[in-house]
Design a protein around this nucleic acid. Sequence first.
DNA 1: GGACCTCCATCGACCGGACAATGTGTCCGT
DNA 2: ACGGACACATTGTCCGGTCGATGGAGGTCC
Lengths: 214, 214
Amino acid sequence: MSVEGSMASEATDDVPPPLELGRAAGVPLYAQIRDALRQQIDSHSLPPGAPLPTEEALQARYGVSRSVVRQALGDLADLGLIVRQRGRGSVVAPRPEHRRRADQAGGLRQQVEAGGHHLRTEIVGLAVDQAPSTAAAALGVTDTWRLERIRRVEEEPLVFMRTWLPRELFPHLSAEDLDGGSLHDWMRARGVEPQGGPRQLQAVPADEAVAAHL
Amino acid sequence: MSVEGSMASEATDDVPPPLELGRAAGVPLYAQIRDALRQQIDSHSLPPGAPLPTEEALQARYGVSRSVVRQALGDLADLGLIVRQRGRGSVVAPRPEHRRRADQAGGLRQQVEAGGHHLRTEIVGLAVDQAPSTAAAALGVTDTWRLERIRRVEEEPLVFMRTWLPRELFPHLSAEDLDGGSLHDWMRARGVEPQGGPRQLQAVPADEAVAAHL
DNA sequence: GGACCTCCATCGACCGGACAATGTGTCCGT
DNA sequence: ACGGACACATTGTCCGGTCGATGGAGGTCC
């Protein structure tokens, strides 16, 4: 919170985002801008299809260099939240719903245990989030995914889990990846120790992956 | 700066990448470097765990600025192909393995341990707590235990988990109960059995099941 | 020998520029 | 009215730095 923020006597301008940046804080400037924009998108203050401020405008608004703005926008583009078009500008991606309720899209997957009871893990939320202090201290990072799941046994909700995963370790998480329990594979793929025989990885170039995501 | 400087008796060096970049081509330099490195990783010319050349080395090898190298490496990190570590360098991600169909319902523990890794779940907090609105809506109750855990693989913290459990379902809960095992295992051990209807869990007293589990 | 402490390599963040590529709009000649 | 030439806006690529954070290596001092 600190100070200022209320100056803004410019009026006439809409000035949606609070232009305070914790310059000395441990949070990078690009992350702050990214999260500020993401919040506006999530709250539909910037509705789907709406044009974002140009890089130059953001640069001026926050008083940072273009590299910082570009990294923020690039992250949002990687997340599929915005679409960048050379010569035209950047707009909020259509259908921001799809990541909120992605569990419905892919269908909920039932996992049947050996005992015969039905254990199901339902994903109710996945978003980039600042880890709370406890989690940040444990993980050593604040830039995280926040994953919310409900674990049901015989359809009866048993536990509610909120999980923070370092984004640096899971750069491209999506609800589709997690659906079906492949979070474990994600983690195992990232594994920790070369253990068995070598395996082949077929990776999709970032551009294609992003394009397909849109 | 100078010029290339790649000659001068490198000889015994492998010089993996072709250091000519299609400067005038339509392909960005960072993409060419990224793809060249990816090919080496895919072909195990750079095996899992192997250190990549430093940014400065790549910068010198290809004769580009550091931004270009960083964008290439950043893309690879986003793809999960490499892991970047400040102060140490970048290495090829261990055990690159494309995610596959996984229909085991087991928790992270059994999967990781099956791969020979050491997984530890550390309990950092257990207290009675009001469930947040999202959790309350899912569980139907607000009177819950709040359990905080850290999952480590090879002592490296990977995930921070905050779990809410209805107190009515888990009347007697203590940190010792959960210590050392996965919540999944614990739930199974304490009688998550297919007895037919929902809400069977409460039938088994926690203390007995826990004692048996330990 | 062990706890500290200083140096150094390396990546992370940021700056302020330059030019290219690609859309959009405008203006002009026919 | 139509089409083309041109200016303009905006993002893409690239440059060459600066400073800070982090982790490891090696040396110092007790």
